[in-house]
Design a protein around this nucleic acid. Structure first.
Lengths: 242, 242
DNA sequence: CCAAAAGTGTTGGTACTACACCCATGC
DNA sequence: GCATGGGTGTAGTACCAACACTTTTGG
């Protein structure tokens, strides 16, 4: 309550916490949902895989910190990272989630198109960063397995009623590629004609690139290309099969 | 990234933050959506209304802190508060959101049935706590107006696809009362026969109390009574009128 | 009887599922 | 030609909004 708010910097007036961000970064590679993991070089959990993340700087919001960490981990230019899909997931604050000290972590979910493997961090203490299929993720450091599970749930749900699926695709994509995003994240197969109609019936979900087309599997009719549209929510929603 | 995680309690390894919870507590009184506000007794924002909230204790999760503050502000017994609807909204971390120091706040939304006016805090420095119609809320302290707006958006959306509406009702309620919850939060009128059918068609949303009935407006046929059912999500969703 | 609130029935339109079918390309 | 993937058409169904109607109470 307001009565407890500190009136200055008196260190007795509040408990000091460290605040971090953790990132669940998803992409689709070779028809499988992957997440970016880094391998810890120091205890606790040395050698364990963990979600990328880090401490908030002194005058930085959690979202700014998340974008900064994302740029560092993926090696993407900051300009590109600035308009990537980034959504606050939730905050994890169990007192014992970090064995060393009290750390409260704000988790974010990022959806990115297929990117090159992150450059090995030159001599850093995190010895590697790697895209890992979510199906093969083993035990993670801290409570990161729970964060990852929450992020997966939320991402699956968001596909139903928002346009975020396009964040997994390159700037120009085919409806078949967009459908594969849904099928991969949901682990379900969808009817192609109906998927197509629902997407095109949602105003602002995708906009056609006139005249452009691309062969996908080497064979078959070249598919028309689309770009992400201006809409962010999906009316009506594209519901998962039961 | 993991490399930046502190290896011990070295105060130079991380920026110290204060962590608080803020609560957007909603109830329905006399057909209007109300929120619980407290009046600040000290600067900054002395005399301004603010959301209830407070600092995390040393070994307490954000949700535990939110329930503790909720019990303190509403005067409800802890046992009752333990199973009230409480949902993490999001975390607010702008560097300047508190003029005195760096404070990161985890916001929660709570939905409660109609309660008595909170007892005046005996000689505390927060001089009053009061239920206020959301339509008449003026400027608030800190970024609490933004938190309240986010909480309203989320609550309206959650009514569509979850069963939380029953949290606004007493243990036994009529379908008319449940419908008023939707109409009040959404600011829309619904068709009674269709509302009734949708609610009863959602398995586990409500369970009938056999034989029980109650007069609502003094006149008219007494309405059957229902209790909250075991379900938490609504299939199919109960969508807002466009 | 009348007003008010609860509850039931019916109907027309919309939207969606599940298919069958046609088109364009590589081999 | 045939396999493969893109794209169109359509019939049956399920759902849903709108509104007419019946029931039960108080005055």
């Amino acid at each position: 309550m307001a009565a407890e708010r500190p009136e200055g910097y008196d260190p007795r007036a509040f408990e000091p916490f460290a605040v971090t961000v953790d990132l669940a970064v998803f992409t689709i590679r070779a028809g499988q949902l992957h997440t970016l993991l880094i391998r810890r070089g120091e205890p606790p959990y040395a050698g364990r895989w963990a979600l990328p993340g880090g401490f908030l700087h002194a005058r930085e919001s959690a979202e700014d910190a998340a974008r900064r960490e994302l740029a560092e981990e993926t090696g993407l230019p900051d300009a590109l990272v600035a308009d990537l899909q980034l959504e606050q997931l939730r905050t994890y604050s169990a007192p014992d989630r970090d064995p060393r000290m009290r750390v409260v972590s704000v988790a974010y979910t990022a959806l990115v198109p297929d990117l090159p493997e992150p450059a090995a961090s030159g001599g850093g203490d995190a010895d590697q960063a790697r895209w890992t299929p979510v199906a093969t993720v083993g035990p993670l450091a801290f409570d990161h397995a729970a964060i990852l599970a929450d992020a997966l749930d939320r991402t699956g749900a968001k596909l139903e009623y928002t346009c975020v699926a396009t964040a997994f695709c390159p700037p120009e994509f085919t409806l078949g590629e967009l459908q594969q995003v849904y099928e991969t994240v949901w682990g379900a197969t969808l009817d192609r004609p109906n998927f197509r109609r629902k997407v095109l019936a949602s105003p602002g979900f995708v906009t056609p690139v006139p005249g452009a087309s691309r062969l996908t599997g080497g064979r078959g009719k070249p598919a028309a290309l689309y770009r992400r549209g201006p809409a962010t929510t999906l009316h009506p929603p594209l519901l998962r099969p039961r």
